[in-house]
Design a protein around this nucleic acid. Sequence first.
DNA 1: GGGTATTTGTCCGTATGTATG
DNA 2: TCATACATACGGACAAATACC
Lengths: 487, 487
Amino acid sequence: MRAKRETTLLIHIDPAAPIPLYQQIYRQFRDAISEGRLATGVRLASIRSLAFDLGVSHTTVEQAYLQLATEGFVEGIPRSGYVVAHIDTEYMALDRHVDVGLVESTLVDRSRDAFFAENRAGAQVPFDFSYANLQPDAFPANEWRRILSDVLYRFDCPELSRYEYTDEPSSLTSALARHLARTRGVRCVPEQVFVQAGTDGALSTVLQLFDRERDVLGMEEPGYATVHEVARRQGFRMTPLPSDQGSEVFLSALDRAKPRIVFTTPSHQFPTGSLLSLDVRTRLLRWAEANDAFIVEDDSCNEFRYGTAPIPSLQSLDAFGRVVYLNNVSKTLAPGLRVAYVVLPPYLLRRYWELFNYAHPPVSWLTCEVLARFMEGGHWDAHVRRVLKSNRRNRDELLRHLGAELGETVRVSGTDAGMHFYVAVRNGMTQRELLESALAEGAKVYGTSRMWFSRPAPEENVMIGFSAISHDRIADGVAALRRAWRG
Amino acid sequence: MRAKRETTLLIHIDPAAPIPLYQQIYRQFRDAISEGRLATGVRLASIRSLAFDLGVSHTTVEQAYLQLATEGFVEGIPRSGYVVAHIDTEYMALDRHVDVGLVESTLVDRSRDAFFAENRAGAQVPFDFSYANLQPDAFPANEWRRILSDVLYRFDCPELSRYEYTDEPSSLTSALARHLARTRGVRCVPEQVFVQAGTDGALSTVLQLFDRERDVLGMEEPGYATVHEVARRQGFRMTPLPSDQGSEVFLSALDRAKPRIVFTTPSHQFPTGSLLSLDVRTRLLRWAEANDAFIVEDDSCNEFRYGTAPIPSLQSLDAFGRVVYLNNVSKTLAPGLRVAYVVLPPYLLRRYWELFNYAHPPVSWLTCEVLARFMEGGHWDAHVRRVLKSNRRNRDELLRHLGAELGETVRVSGTDAGMHFYVAVRNGMTQRELLESALAEGAKVYGTSRMWFSRPAPEENVMIGFSAISHDRIADGVAALRRAWRG
DNA sequence: GGGTATTTGTCCGTATGTATG
DNA sequence: TCATACATACGGACAAATACC
């Protein structure tokens, strides 16, 4: 490229200004070029001549030119000079404060959204019957901090400075494999266990092992809205499997629709709280084997059974490698940790490694290491016992008061397990009216309508949880519900 | 259901055994039913009669029966008795140690995989010229631990016990928005910032905002293999955009293929290390606006520039809301933390909230909170300076020795920025031979062939990194490379 | 047209005030 | 408090490009 002519741009510098000299020069050139005052191809003053004019060292000018060159405003021709590069001056003049209005309107829309209004401001209500959150002080902060200090003191944590790959068994996958074998009868080696970023992330990963075009996901209805949404985002078609009309209806829907993947919550159906019997379990497994289907067993909440011991997992009955075991630490330790895990059967394990060659584990090594030590040190079992005890106390209290205050008006089910009751309120109110009248009395209960996706949701069903509310507020909370629903 | 006849099953219990009495009873019934020794419909001994026979309390037997009932082995008929439920005894007899062979063979296959052999055992080699890992002691463990203790001491961390939703601005998104505005000129509000589980996770999320059927992803070639893999898993078609033949070839490929999404690394192209000039940047942005396309700007590694100050981000030039800004803390703080973040432009923000209604943030609240305080406390800037300094020292050392020992044999590029050099070795060896001969001398360099996906990769290009190796091993490492490549 | 002087960018070391640890 | 490192600014030496004779 040849220079057309030399610049006549006048540069001013102020040695007293707080801005470095080379930056003052740089900026004046940059702005002149951006605004089109220096046209493409124009030759800049030579480093030495400009330095002489300004009374500074030539290296100072050099530094300014170098910065202009790396940012693309000028082009350096070796040992010859600098010329102005091609710059779209029209573009550079455009205002970049774009579409802030769209951001703001989107934010406002969100804040009005019913689901968020329901779930977000829970803490601000006197009686929050949340079905998923835990007691505010449930997290074993002291133990966690101690273990974390041990890990960080140990030595310099080279693991944190390395990219790991998902086929390296870790202390956490080993601890989980042992724990699952002991408490849930799950048979696996650590290499089958994958730690994931929450249930959403786990499910996302599992779905990616299948074929969007051909494979259909069978979804419990009513069921987790999150699962429904993840499947939609992942581009999978869904077929509803009625979960509130008994197991025969469930199984025959399965046989009609023949999904490739089936999402189930066998040990505690969400939200109804029902339980898949042993007979249905074996029929489900046989069906999966006969139809080359896979079952995702979401075993969340299995720890909380009131009356009987936890029942064995579906995976432990699986003789064909048809079950993906899925669980998380959100209900027992902390939702805020975002730790879930899946156990893949052999076929899907192979498929995983075809598709996740360059994938890294999605959860912090530090979190995994601390959790592994927490489990291996026996803190996990002790902690689950504590949480179970608290949940049982709250459950009994809530059940007692619901019976006493609203005995005639409500039909309560799903009381054997989990962190909430599935309650039909028979006072003629719509779901919206039920939630809003309760809220007006300071009590927050939760709607179920988003858990249906193929047929209209029954109006009268709400969820009343007992995991987050403090024990001594339950009585007053139920009194508030009575005022709201029985006048 | 009516009972056929009563059981004659003999139950033994041992009060001295470590197993609870009710479990001894439960297990004997369970096994008998599983194995078919008690047929469907058979009536169990009544609770009181069995209790009398065994000499235990009737509540002990009741507990055993209850467990059998919840697990589905028996059915309780109210005020009548328990009968054996329908059990698929044939199924229950199946061996459940299935397909362990498949698991094991998959594991063996993996351990032989070239990529994993290359990336996994890095630490065991005397001279690891890794291009992505950090110094083993790079993580600021003391500061991190102190902040973490502050957070956990503070009070009971109710945030850990709650499910959050992704539209709640957090201390981290606020800190990131401020930091990005200051150091990269990125204009955004915290509500546009989304913390994600690593770059893989971030990219996954971004892709889900598009249409798999219609939208094509334009991918730099050579470029990140991870991006390629994520796109494949997400079901997106890809079109290659040559990144090693100058910007005109890049832009014309763009104009021919017209992808909807373009993945770029403008401030430090991976792996070539080249830089997108200002002119190309504006042309890219104009092109995106004219073609209704979106650009994903991976700004990773922008912090490491040797010689000149970091150049402004593409997002800061974006007048149309066409750029998704993407970065992570893996190169500066720790890959093991798995923290990345995206800044969505208004249109994609709206799209996000259509699809991620029930999504939770994928990163631990604890990690986010500590990182936010780390940044707000000024530790981030100081730490980046430290890492930059270490990288610069290593870069200079490596460049010096490469020139001295292999000056004739290699052509080194991409030296202005990043954590590695892009090196063409001109000694006639294939890529495999280059890597293996180096490894035989104890030096690990990294292949580039997986970064091409539509055309054959040049054999002679390897990456030689300097971010993980210790400073005083570089000289010996390069000597090893000389022995390997020049005999 | 070829040798030479000059201009040019580039690379080197160094001094100084400031920020960092 | 003090040593260190860094950003800034400076001047000199060098070699390639250019202009001149």
